[in-house]
Design a protein around this nucleic acid. Structure first.
Lengths: 346, 346
DNA sequence: CTGTTAGCGCGTTCAG
DNA sequence: CTGAACGCGCTAACAG
């Protein structure tokens, strides 16, 4: 309940000098007697002195804390991005407060308020699948706290964003499916509140168009990312009069679920039906068959987003840039779409 | 650079009342005119007012923030525990600051200092594989900031701990291997600075003893959790004059690596060699063969650890308890040890 | 080089 | 029910 905090005052008393002198010693100020400084530092060490960042933040109006708001924590995607963000933030002397919203809009709003109350210097945000109103995020802008979106961005807010070329990734993936001889490619499309869903869907559509394949609306399933429903959709697709010979799922966890379902039904992958996902989840290369997918440069996403954010933090509000950085994806072909993977050298 | 913060003073000025009144309205104080309160709240909402937790924490000497220090973020284990901890903390009005140490002792020390400087009310800690000195953690105790260990605990510190029965889990697992007819079971043992390694190793040893299998030191490989080295160890084991017919790896990521290596070599799993891991990682049920492993109640670990921590926070230092809560594990038998998994109802 | 003073935003006395 | 005054731990601006 009651904490023992060593304060500057304690040190000053002990050494019988003024508080400011102690403060200067602790903050490598230029004007300070090296001997005094040494004495102070030694005593501070001995007394377990630790600067109270709260007080400093209160004065300087800077907390050296970055907030990270992500929709979930279960797939390997966000943890990876966060690790990279933390490393980058740490280099610049920033800490990170993380909160995950469990794909709930309400929780996201709450988390945003907490970040605000904790005086973060900036926020890195990826929205939930439910988020359609952005008032809670616009507050940051109004208060002059920079915000950078990554992956799941808010299109209507004019702020920096880090995304990958979802359109191109999906396009290449679908072209690959066509090249393996597939004709009827189904798509489990994500909610259209997410720009990633739209990008991937459009890549899918345009790839079909380019190859003069007629688009069959029946094969495009609107899907809200609830893994539980995957099984139903797969069965529905297979029950069609003219069933698909490939399924492109909007993300890897979904594709994995599709594979499990198909295997249970007893169809051969990829001969009877090919499966592909998006984002190269940790499990994708381990399962059987291995999942063909589109890899995102996760490390780079975390790093660049953090750099952009810190850049904004160091800028006057009037100087804020709203550049969108779009990174390239990489198609990873594995055995869920091609019978024999050419063994990659390791 | 410059933030626009709405303060109590701003609201007071606007409404032409005193700061204390505004403060009272904002903190549901008993003595306040309902009308004044309503006016204040409305204006606060309109002005995007958000309490400055830094100032409040400074005064009350409470930050309502819990620090979480974990060694890594890549396996699904820690993210899962953290999600559960965050949910539990949130119920009690606490926020979470997370830092991962990348299995580096140095980073862990730095992270601990950051937590301290940020005036966390308590910390949840799981140490790195390198940590052998605990001074950076003992500071918390000296300062009266409660600390609760989970999973990777520090044995010499007398504080609450949440662990699973690693001994029993390993014992059951090894017994299972013996029951499938395996006689020479190798073990990739973790660093003995980690109590989990010791528990699992002892479970392994005692299971063998119970079944009168002679212990062969050659089959026990000291291993520092660096996945890169797994391949070498596996090849070494297989090259023995009398090679093992089963490998029990100290954790799932390692076991997965073992499986990959064995598959590449061309041996049959489990006929030629059975593989088992520990912790039921996300990928374990998806890979081929599916991995036999020991599941930990991750949700419960995060929840109980957080509850214990908050309980300590609400106690006087003199009243601190140092109970160790040991949770049960569950053996999960899959196709990496038994040819045909009895299909579980789903 | 060092000491003194003010004040960051807010809750909490104490008077009215 | 409300207002004024104080101080949390610390830095910054000013004097010496």
């Amino acid at each position: 309940m009651k904490r023992h905090q060593t304060t500057i005052l304690d040190i000053a008393k002990e050494l019988n000098i003024s508080k400011s002198t102690v403060s200067r010693a602790l903050t490598n100020h230029p004007n300070i007697n090296p001997e005094t400084k040494k004495k102070v530092l030694e005593l501070a060490e001995k007394m377990d002195y630790q600067r109270n960042m709260l007080a400093i933040s209160l004065i300087t109006n800077k907390s050296y804390t970055i907030g990270v708001i992500v929709p979930e924590f279960i797939s390997s995607y966000f943890p990876k991005v966060i690790v990279s963000a933390q490393i980058e933030a740490s280099k610049a002397g920033y800490n990170i407060i993380i909160s995950q919203s469990n794909e709930s809009y309400e929780t996201e709003v709450k988390n945003a308020k907490v970040m605000l109350a904790n005086q973060v210097d900036g926020v890195l945000v990826s929205i939930t699948k439910e988020t359609r109103n952005y008032d809670h995020l616009k507050i940051f802008q109004r208060k002059g706290i920079p915000i950078v979106f990554f992956n799941r961005i808010c299109e209507e807010m004019i702020v920096p964003k880090v995304i990958v070329d979802d359109y191109e990734g999906a396009f290449k993936l679908v072209e690959h499916l066509l090249q393996t001889g597939k004709k009827r490619i189904a798509h489990l499309a994500g909610p259209d509140s997410l720009s990633i869903s739209k990008g991937r869907l459009n890549g899918y559509l345009d790839a079909l168009k380019k190859h003069h394949i007629e688009i069959d609306e029946e094969l495009i399933i609107p899907y809200d990312l609830s893994l539980r429903k995957v099984k139903i959709y797969v069965k529905h697709l297979l029950g069609l009069e003219n069933p698909p010979d490939a399924i492109f799922a909007v993300n890897d966890p979904t594709a994995i679920e599709v594979v499990q379902t198909i295997k249970k039904i007893g169809l051969r992958i990829p001969e009877d039906i090919a499966i592909a996902g998006y984002s190269d989840d940790y499990a994708s290369s381990l399962m059987e068959p291995k999942l063909t997918t589109v890899a995102q440069p996760v490390d780079e996403i975390g790093k660049i987003a953090t750099q952009m954010l810190i850049d904004q933090i160091n800028r006057e509000v009037a100087d804020w840039k709203a550049t969108t950085k779009m990174l390239k994806t990489k198609l990873i072909i594995r055995s869920s779409t091609v019978k024999e993977t050419t063994s990659n050298p390791e």
